[in-house]
Protein backbone atom coordinates (compact mmCIF):
# COMPACT_ATOMS: atom_id res chain seq x y z
CA UNK A 1 0.00 0.00 0.00
CA UNK A 2 1.21 3.48 -0.84
CA UNK A 3 2.22 5.80 1.93
CA UNK A 4 -0.17 8.43 3.23
CA UNK A 5 0.93 11.88 2.06
CA UNK A 6 -1.74 13.81 3.90
CA UNK A 7 -3.67 12.54 6.88
CA UNK A 8 -6.59 14.55 8.18
CA UNK A 9 -7.99 13.38 11.47
CA UNK A 10 -11.29 14.71 12.78
CA UNK A 11 -10.59 18.25 11.55
CA UNK A 12 -13.12 20.86 12.68
CA UNK A 13 -13.51 24.58 12.74
CA UNK A 14 -16.10 26.51 14.63
CA UNK A 15 -16.98 30.02 13.41
CA UNK A 16 -18.84 31.28 16.46
CA UNK A 17 -21.16 28.30 16.56
CA UNK A 18 -21.20 27.57 12.82
CA UNK A 19 -19.23 24.42 12.09
CA UNK A 20 -18.02 24.98 8.54
CA UNK A 21 -15.93 21.84 8.75
CA UNK A 22 -17.06 19.29 11.28
CA UNK A 23 -14.93 16.25 12.04
CA UNK A 24 -13.55 15.59 8.56
CA UNK A 25 -11.13 12.67 8.32
CA UNK A 26 -9.43 11.49 5.19
CA UNK A 27 -6.19 10.00 3.99
CA UNK A 28 -4.66 11.05 0.69
CA UNK A 29 -1.94 8.75 -0.57
CA UNK A 30 1.35 9.70 -2.14
CA UNK A 31 0.88 10.61 -5.78
CA UNK A 32 -2.89 10.49 -5.61
CA UNK A 33 -5.22 12.97 -7.27
CA UNK A 34 -8.21 13.60 -5.06
CA UNK A 35 -11.20 15.66 -6.06
CA UNK A 36 -13.34 17.37 -3.45
CA UNK A 37 -16.94 17.75 -4.49
CA UNK A 38 -19.76 19.45 -2.72
CA UNK A 39 -22.35 22.16 -3.03
CA UNK A 40 -21.69 25.75 -2.05
CA UNK A 41 -21.10 25.92 1.67
CA UNK A 42 -20.16 22.25 1.98
CA UNK A 43 -16.80 23.28 3.44
CA UNK A 44 -14.45 22.52 0.54
CA UNK A 45 -12.58 25.80 0.51
CA UNK A 46 -12.62 25.97 4.31
CA UNK A 47 -11.02 22.53 4.40
CA UNK A 48 -8.24 23.84 2.13
CA UNK A 49 -7.88 26.89 4.37
CA UNK A 50 -7.43 24.60 7.35
CA UNK A 51 -4.84 22.42 5.61
CA UNK A 52 -2.82 25.37 4.33
CA UNK A 53 -2.94 27.31 7.59
CA UNK A 54 -5.11 30.20 6.44
CA UNK A 55 -7.74 29.33 9.02
CA UNK A 56 -6.89 27.91 12.43
CA UNK A 57 -8.72 24.73 13.27
CA UNK A 58 -10.54 24.31 16.56
CA UNK A 59 -10.27 20.53 16.61
CA UNK A 60 -8.49 17.63 14.95
CA UNK A 61 -5.06 17.28 13.39
CA UNK A 62 -3.36 17.48 10.00
CA UNK A 63 -0.28 15.42 9.18
CA UNK A 64 2.01 15.86 6.20
CA UNK A 65 3.63 12.42 6.03
CA UNK A 66 4.58 12.02 9.69
CA UNK A 67 4.81 15.71 10.57
CA UNK A 68 2.01 17.27 12.54
CA UNK A 69 1.43 20.60 10.77
CA UNK A 70 -1.83 21.53 12.50
CA UNK A 71 -2.19 25.30 12.83
CA UNK A 72 1.35 26.14 11.73
CA UNK A 73 1.92 29.54 10.15
CA UNK A 74 1.18 29.54 6.41
CA UNK A 75 4.72 30.05 5.20
CA UNK A 76 5.98 27.20 7.38
CA UNK A 77 3.32 24.87 6.02
CA UNK A 78 4.30 25.97 2.52
CA UNK A 79 7.97 25.26 3.27
CA UNK A 80 7.01 21.88 4.70
CA UNK A 81 5.64 21.00 1.27
CA UNK A 82 2.08 22.13 0.70
CA UNK A 83 1.38 24.46 -2.21
CA UNK A 84 -1.91 26.14 -2.87
CA UNK A 85 -3.70 27.74 -5.77
CA UNK A 86 -6.45 30.20 -4.96
CA UNK A 87 -9.92 30.46 -6.37
CA UNK A 88 -9.27 34.01 -7.55
CA UNK A 89 -6.04 33.72 -9.51
CA UNK A 90 -3.30 35.50 -7.65
CA UNK A 91 0.06 36.20 -9.22
CA UNK A 92 2.58 39.02 -8.87
CA UNK A 93 0.98 41.45 -11.31
CA UNK A 94 3.73 44.01 -11.72
CA UNK A 95 6.47 41.46 -12.30
CA UNK A 96 7.16 39.67 -15.56
CA UNK A 97 6.06 36.09 -16.03
CA UNK A 98 9.64 34.91 -15.70
CA UNK A 99 10.15 36.95 -12.54
CA UNK A 100 7.02 35.43 -11.06
CA UNK A 101 8.41 31.95 -11.55
CA UNK A 102 11.85 32.98 -10.32
CA UNK A 103 10.34 34.17 -7.06
CA UNK A 104 8.61 30.82 -6.70
CA UNK A 105 11.87 29.02 -7.43
CA UNK A 106 13.63 30.70 -4.55
CA UNK A 107 14.49 27.95 -2.11
CA UNK A 108 15.53 30.05 0.85
CA UNK A 109 12.82 31.75 2.88
CA UNK A 110 15.03 34.14 4.84
CA UNK A 111 15.69 37.79 3.99
CA UNK A 112 19.40 37.72 4.67
CA UNK A 113 20.05 34.58 2.66
CA UNK A 114 18.43 36.36 -0.29
CA UNK A 115 20.62 39.46 -0.30
CA UNK A 116 22.48 38.04 -3.29
CA UNK A 117 21.80 38.51 -6.99
CA UNK A 118 20.23 36.21 -9.53
CA UNK A 119 17.97 33.20 -9.29
CA UNK A 120 19.83 29.97 -9.96
CA UNK A 121 16.96 27.79 -11.15
CA UNK A 122 16.87 28.90 -14.81
CA UNK A 123 16.44 25.40 -16.24
CA UNK A 124 13.53 24.72 -13.92
CA UNK A 125 11.86 28.03 -14.82
CA UNK A 126 12.26 27.34 -18.56
CA UNK A 127 10.79 23.88 -18.12
CA UNK A 128 7.75 25.23 -16.29
CA UNK A 129 7.27 28.03 -18.85
CA UNK A 130 7.14 25.32 -21.50
CA UNK A 131 4.71 23.21 -19.49
CA UNK A 132 2.23 26.02 -18.89
CA UNK A 133 2.65 27.28 -22.45
CA UNK A 134 3.84 30.77 -21.56
CA UNK A 135 7.35 30.65 -23.03
CA UNK A 136 6.48 33.39 -25.52
CA UNK A 137 5.08 35.58 -22.76
CA UNK A 138 8.07 35.15 -20.43
CA UNK A 139 9.04 38.82 -20.52
CA UNK A 140 5.55 40.17 -20.28
CA UNK A 141 4.26 41.82 -17.15
CA UNK A 142 1.76 39.47 -15.53
CA UNK A 143 -0.94 42.15 -15.35
CA UNK A 144 -1.28 41.97 -19.15
CA UNK A 145 -2.03 38.24 -19.27
CA UNK A 146 -5.50 36.92 -20.10
CA UNK A 147 -7.56 35.33 -17.34
CA UNK A 148 -6.70 31.82 -18.49
CA UNK A 149 -2.99 32.64 -18.79
CA UNK A 150 -3.04 34.10 -15.29
CA UNK A 151 -4.50 30.86 -13.97
CA UNK A 152 -1.77 28.88 -15.73
CA UNK A 153 0.88 31.19 -14.40
CA UNK A 154 -0.36 30.53 -10.89
CA UNK A 155 -0.23 26.81 -11.60
CA UNK A 156 3.29 27.46 -12.86
CA UNK A 157 4.21 29.12 -9.57
CA UNK A 158 3.15 25.94 -7.81
CA UNK A 159 5.10 23.74 -10.21
CA UNK A 160 8.21 25.83 -9.65
CA UNK A 161 7.70 25.77 -5.91
CA UNK A 162 7.54 21.97 -6.34
CA UNK A 163 5.60 21.07 -3.19
CA UNK A 164 4.77 17.50 -2.21
CA UNK A 165 1.09 18.30 -2.06
CA UNK A 166 -0.76 20.73 -4.31
CA UNK A 167 -4.13 22.15 -3.31
CA UNK A 168 -6.10 23.51 -6.26
CA UNK A 169 -9.18 25.57 -5.56
CA UNK A 170 -11.33 25.65 -8.70
CA UNK A 171 -8.50 25.83 -11.20
CA UNK A 172 -10.88 26.19 -14.14
CA UNK A 173 -13.11 28.91 -12.70
CA UNK A 174 -14.01 31.41 -15.42
CA UNK A 175 -12.21 29.51 -18.17
CA UNK A 176 -13.44 28.80 -21.68
CA UNK A 177 -13.87 25.18 -22.74
CA UNK A 178 -10.57 25.15 -24.59
CA UNK A 179 -8.78 26.70 -21.63
CA UNK A 180 -10.38 24.16 -19.29
CA UNK A 181 -9.11 21.36 -21.50
CA UNK A 182 -5.60 22.75 -21.50
CA UNK A 183 -5.74 23.05 -17.73
CA UNK A 184 -6.75 19.42 -17.43
CA UNK A 185 -3.71 18.51 -19.54
CA UNK A 186 -1.47 20.47 -17.18
CA UNK A 187 -3.04 18.86 -14.12
CA UNK A 188 -2.83 15.38 -15.64
CA UNK A 189 0.83 16.06 -16.31
CA UNK A 190 1.32 16.61 -12.59
CA UNK A 191 -0.26 13.31 -11.63
CA UNK A 192 2.13 10.89 -10.07
CA UNK A 193 4.79 13.55 -9.45
CA UNK A 194 2.73 15.42 -6.88
CA UNK A 195 -0.11 14.58 -4.58
CA UNK A 196 -2.99 16.75 -5.69
CA UNK A 197 -6.24 17.78 -4.06
CA UNK A 198 -8.68 19.65 -6.29
CA UNK A 199 -11.88 21.48 -5.49
CA UNK A 200 -13.91 21.70 -8.65
CA UNK A 201 -17.47 22.22 -9.83
CA UNK A 202 -16.91 21.65 -13.52
CA UNK A 203 -18.01 18.05 -14.09
CA UNK A 204 -16.38 17.75 -17.51
CA UNK A 205 -13.10 18.72 -15.90
CA UNK A 206 -13.64 16.33 -12.99
CA UNK A 207 -14.18 13.47 -15.45
CA UNK A 208 -10.98 14.32 -17.29
CA UNK A 209 -8.79 14.25 -14.21
CA UNK A 210 -10.50 12.42 -11.34
CA UNK A 211 -9.32 9.22 -9.72
CA UNK A 212 -10.89 9.31 -6.30
CA UNK A 213 -13.56 11.70 -5.16
CA UNK A 214 -14.48 12.82 -1.67
CA UNK A 215 -17.92 14.36 -1.36
CA UNK A 216 -18.45 16.90 1.38
CA UNK A 217 -21.84 17.89 2.68
CA UNK A 218 -22.52 20.42 5.44
CA UNK A 219 -18.96 20.22 6.66
CA UNK A 220 -18.79 16.44 6.81
CA UNK A 221 -17.62 13.65 4.55
CA UNK A 222 -20.66 12.19 2.80
CA UNK A 223 -18.98 9.66 0.55
CA UNK A 224 -15.63 8.67 -0.89
CA UNK A 225 -14.81 6.52 -3.88
CA UNK A 226 -14.03 6.31 -7.60
CA UNK A 227 -15.97 8.31 -10.17
CA UNK A 228 -18.30 5.41 -10.92
CA UNK A 229 -18.86 4.63 -7.24
CA UNK A 230 -19.74 8.24 -6.53
CA UNK A 231 -22.01 8.35 -9.57
CA UNK A 232 -24.01 5.41 -8.31
CA UNK A 233 -23.99 6.28 -4.62
CA UNK A 234 -27.63 6.91 -3.72
CA UNK A 235 -26.78 9.37 -0.92
CA UNK A 236 -24.71 11.52 -3.27
CA UNK A 237 -27.31 11.30 -5.97
CA UNK A 238 -29.89 12.50 -3.57
CA UNK A 239 -27.80 15.34 -2.19
CA UNK A 240 -26.24 16.77 -5.35
CA UNK A 241 -26.38 15.10 -8.64
CA UNK A 242 -30.09 14.63 -9.08
CA UNK A 243 -30.99 11.34 -10.77
CA UNK A 244 -28.85 11.84 -13.88
CA UNK A 245 -25.42 11.20 -12.36
CA UNK A 246 -22.27 12.95 -13.56
CA UNK A 247 -22.76 14.09 -17.11
Amino acid sequence: MAQAALTIDGLSVDFEGFKAVNGVSMIVEDGELRVLLGANGAGKTTLMDLISGKTRSTGGRVFLHDTDITNWEEHRIARAGIGRKFQIPSVFKELTVRRNLEVASCTSPSVFANLGFGFPAKAKVDEVLELIGLTDEANRVAAYLSHGQTQWLELGLLLTQDPKIILLDEPTAGMTQAETHKTSLIVNNLKGRHTIIVVEHDMAFVREIAERITVLHLGQVLAEGSVSEIETDPKVKQAYLGSKGIT
Binding site: H75, A78, S90, F92, E94, N100, C106, L157
Partner: peptide, 15 residues
Protein backbone atom coordinates in the same frame (compact mmCIF):
# COMPACT_ATOMS: atom_id res chain seq x y z
CA UNK B 1 6.23 40.12 -5.12
CA UNK B 2 4.96 40.64 -1.58
CA UNK B 3 3.79 44.13 -2.54
CA UNK B 4 1.81 42.70 -5.45
CA UNK B 5 0.23 39.84 -3.54
CA UNK B 6 1.07 39.17 0.08
CA UNK B 7 -0.91 35.99 0.31
CA UNK B 8 0.58 34.46 -2.78
CA UNK B 9 4.06 35.11 -1.40
CA UNK B 10 3.06 33.67 1.96
CA UNK B 11 1.83 30.43 0.40
CA UNK B 12 5.04 30.16 -1.58
CA UNK B 13 6.75 29.91 1.79
CA UNK B 14 8.05 33.43 2.41
CA UNK B 15 7.98 34.95 5.86
Amino acid sequence: AIRDDQNRARYLGFD
